[in-house]
Design a protein around this nucleic acid. Sequence first.
DNA 1: GTCTATAGCCCGATAGAC
DNA 2: GTCTATCGGGCTATAGAC
Lengths: 215, 215
Amino acid sequence: MAKLTTKERIVVEALRLFNEQGYDAVTTAALAAHLGMAEGNLWYHFKTKRALLDAIGARYAKVIEARISQAPGEDAVASYALLLETMMAEFRAFRFLYRDQRSYGQLAETIERNARQWTQRTIDQLEHYLAALVDAGLLDWPRERLHDVAINATIILRYGLEHYREMGDPVGEGSGSVRRTLLRHLTLFEHRLEPGAAERLHAAIELIGQQALAA
Amino acid sequence: MAKLTTKERIVVEALRLFNEQGYDAVTTAALAAHLGMAEGNLWYHFKTKRALLDAIGARYAKVIEARISQAPGEDAVASYALLLETMMAEFRAFRFLYRDQRSYGQLAETIERNARQWTQRTIDQLEHYLAALVDAGLLDWPRERLHDVAINATIILRYGLEHYREMGDPVGEGSGSVRRTLLRHLTLFEHRLEPGAAERLHAAIELIGQQALAA
DNA sequence: GTCTATAGCCCGATAGAC
DNA sequence: GTCTATCGGGCTATAGAC
């Protein structure tokens, strides 16, 4: 782990706490306590709580843009697995942004401005990756219904974690909600997947699930 | 509309505001102002904000139990359409309970205790209704994959409203997010639905969507 | 049952010493 | 850059008059 500036440490810890406890629930006092610094020092680095939110928003924009610009490579299955891993890591790392939108309201300009196009491009990207599976002869699916699967998969991937948390699978350590969410989205088209490809995707999901547990 | 006691009026208005603005964002002062009464009067009827939450939770439990105990009737299509209508009304009427769980945390005992079994029974119910369509020869779907569709449909029905709100479709007046969510869940199995049944479901969805707009 | 007045708390944020 | 001390304000909740 590289050394972080105090400013970066604040952003990282704030993101962690927001994800864990919710944006409202994390007071600046609690944040300062967790960082082992005085509250006043927080205000030196970020003049408002909103400025902190903006910094997280900027981080998120960078991460999501990097992911969205990716295209499937030669190995359609490996590409798809990598996309899944990247998306889940992203959804987890910035969970509170999706979850607590009501709380921070219109405070996060970057996010509010871009949320729609990000989701749309995520759907298009997923469709693109699924099309690669079809083109490789690994997925037997009519082109005209590929877009629908991509939308449904996006919804399940994004909200699966919430669903499984509610179902009594705490998202923290010891949880298998990432794995369960990935398996869930697979049920959308698994029955028309070439057996070898299905097996590889299952193996990849187990790996991603374990990584998520370790993190 | 029947006459409501003050206590009931408070619950109804609180539910409305919580759904609209979020649990945290609605202060007791704002709630009192909306009701045209003094804040102190609120505390006469509900000693804490949590007691108000419990009252809403009790209402929710009643509504959800009534829905879950329903079984499909003779007309499998009409039964399914009615279930969709009931579920969407319920999800909309108690939106904040799903959405703001972080905010009210473990305050709502009833809900926390029952959330898991409610979701499970909702999935089972949906599967039961889908099975009725299969039994009537209107849906061509293998039994062993019916459970998966039921789970996926439940996730989409529940989180679809959030998804479409984020996509720029405000859930308030003028919105078609209920209609869009219902159509979305239909893409899971529509291609194997008998054409006449598909047509009837589409017609029903348009009707439900319009009701939601009017409400 | 409903009102007014206010207590007590914790929040985000500021000022200024070091 | 980091600290201490403190402010104004909004929150839930209480007390007591009517």
